[in-house]
Design a protein around this nucleic acid. Structure first.
Lengths: 198, 198
DNA sequence: ATTTGACAGAATAGACCAATTATGTAAAGT
DNA sequence: ACTTTACATAATTGGTCTATTCTGTCAAAT
């Protein structure tokens, strides 16, 4: 049985493996999967190319780890925004979607997503669901002990609608302010429909 | 001054020009802009290639007419669904979005949209706005003489949220039934928020 | 009004080859 | 634990060439 010690706390010093992944993330985001070379990742991590191969069997495995890391940090980002202090509920929701949406001006996002889908399908399929879960939790918490007022729409479905609206509005708007305005409308509608605005 | 007689009623017999456009629409939708030849369009219209050039100065002009026609018919489709008899309001809304969304499995849609954007930017920019307007009109009509209950969200913005949600949900779901379920949730939320469901 | 046949020039697709670059493995060194 | 150097193989890129297709225009025919 391998001593497969999982890190107990996030405060543990990061593994070399984690450092490599952390360094690889921006490289993959910037150049896409195909045009990212193991050399580039190694340089970004201040390591030799062979050192990377000591920790990952190949490019695909490295990329899978990168995608996994991205998913985790994205969900963490959403969680952080959803419970950020000093913001009203609608601003928390807005921040959560705003800060977790993929950056604009990424031509390679399609390529990256395609590769991820064919290489680590589970992670990609779940990232959206995880964020929806976070949002649903936040809505439930805001509801407190009150009863959910909608008969035909569950909390999760409401969160899903918000996420869908975020995606769609992102596509249809050009500048960030238009996106924020659209999303604010969507959030207002959902909160109003669920009685979460006084 | 040219006798540029516009057709007075939609009941006029269609021009040969219109016939060509009508025949060209499915061809462009099927093959995209680049891989659609004037020959293919002419064949689809049961005409010679030269006959097409008699009515359109070139491929670009033909395509512009096709895009225009598509926009018009899409808006007409939305309108028809929004006022369809025998359906409840939420079903009308659902049908409107369902029937006007671009068909699935279109790899060429991106190419088509790009070409259209660079060739007839106005039409593409307006089609979404037109549909939103139709939806907003329907919502206003459903409201009757009642007052719009939302202070921070206009009717147009509510319609825009629905449209954005439709786009986003379309992307995130795979099968039609999931899309319909998601859209139904979105519509319920909006109608509930605006007091249009008893 | 539309067709047929014909045409020059532009664009596209396919094939092929050479040069470069990337992947993954290995051995020896610090 | 990592570096350096080296290497075989695969993948990518760039270039050139040819053949084909497409556009847009013309003239003659019905």
């Amino acid at each position: 049985m391998k001593t497969n010690e999982p890190r107990q706390h996030a405060t543990d010093s990061p593994t070399r493996r984690d450092e490599i992944v952390a360094a690889a993330v921006p490289v993959f985001l910037r150049f896409g999967y195909r045009k990212t070379s193991m050399d580039a990742v190694a340089s970004a991590a201040n390591l030799s190319r062979q050192a990377v191969y000591l920790h990952f069997p190949g490019k695909e495995a490295l990329f899978a780890a990168v995608v996994d890391s991205l998913c985790q940090s994205t969900v963490a980002l959403a969680h952080s925004a959803l419970w950020r202090e000093g913001l009203t509920l609608d601003d928390q929701l807005l921040a959560a979607f705003d800060e977790t949406m993929p950056d604009e001006s990424m031509e390679l996002l399609a390529e990256l997503l395609d590769t991820a889908r064919s290489l680590v399908p589970d992670a990609v399929a779940n990232i959206d669901a995880l964020i929806v879960g976070e949002v649903a939790n936040r809505l439930r918490a805001a509801l407190g002990r009150r009863k959910w007022p909608l008969a035909d729409v569950t909390v999760e479905e409401a969160a899903q609608v918000l996420q869908g609206a975020s995606y769609g509005i992102k596509q249809q708007t050009t500048d960030r302010s238009a996106y924020l305005a659209g999303m604010r409308s969507a959030i207002e509608l959902v909160l109003h429909a669920t009685g979460l605005t006084p």
